[in-house]
Design a protein around this nucleic acid. Structure first.
Lengths: 141, 141
DNA sequence: ATAGTATATGCCTTTTTTTGCATATACCCA
DNA sequence: TGGGTATATGCAAAAAAAGGCATATACTAT
């Protein structure tokens, strides 16, 4: 393996070396998801999730699609999931008890067909309930 | 995938995110190799190679065996090679033209059955010829 | 246009890796 | 034991990544 090839391989592994990014990929296993869904499932703030998504996107591991206000991300190369499975084989995997927190995610994919405005207000309310960003200019610590 | 599991997976990927470490693993594909062999093939200094080997060893990806003066390293989990192949599939692999530099490595595995002392002197001579460490206290730059 | 929402990005500080160097350790042989 | 060799490790400076925060962008509905 020559040096240039090794560098390109390393770039992929660099994108995978972060626990949150691995969790994101795992959440994208079966289907594409919007950012707000990932935000809710991971319990991380929006900007943070977007940053990790950007790393994965720049590495070419995920691709995105815009639909109205929402961005949907999906696995660009199914081989990535193969790698996750292979690593689990190495570390002697527990069968991944799936931390599906059953958080009621307000995205249209999770809570489909609502009245547009009703959806929005319910959305904001749900976000406040979860302690997430409330869109005020400055949130007191 | 819960947080603790993601951390353990990330540890493996961290060990793999370095080009030299990937090259080392590739060199160990077919058989175990001694450090001096890796040193020659990679064109890196001994301490540097040992450091990278230590990272891979602590991650549990390789194991070592001592035989006299030489330490031989080998892949601990063949799944690691599967991962390398999978990554190559993702980045659209050239078929790895194998930078086998044909450096005449002086280790007993590459240059077997010599008279012990003759081997040693030839060894040192070969190393000097290759511009590697000469065991003088301070090598002039 | 205006207001509101989902997502993205830039900047800065803290933490982690990298990497070079010196030196330590382990082993062999005379 | 003593000298020489193969490999390992500790340390510190340099480079890179992580993470927090403010704000920018893109879109939607009124």
């Amino acid at each position: 393996m020559n040096n240039a090839t090794a560098e390109r391989h390393a770039h992929i592994f660099k994108a995978l070396m972060h626990p949150v990014r691995l969790q994101i990929l795992d959440l994208l296993r079966s289907d594409e998801q919007c950012v707000c869904h990932l935000e809710a499932q991971l319990g991380q703030r929006q900007a943070y999730v977007s940053q990790q998504l950007a790393v994965l996107r720049k590495a070419g591991l995920i691709s995105d699609r815009r639909d109205g206000l929402n961005s949907y991300y999906r696995i660009a190369h199914p081989e990535v999931l193969t790698m996750l499975d292979t690593v689990r084989a190495i570390i002697g995997g527990d069968e991944s008890p799936e931390t599906s927190l059953a958080i009621d995610c307000p995205c249209p994919r999770c809570s489909p067909v609502r009245e547009p405005m009703l959806f929005k207000k319910a959305h904001a309310k749900a976000r406040r309930r979860e302690g997430l960003r409330t869109y005020a200019k400055n949130v007191a610590p």
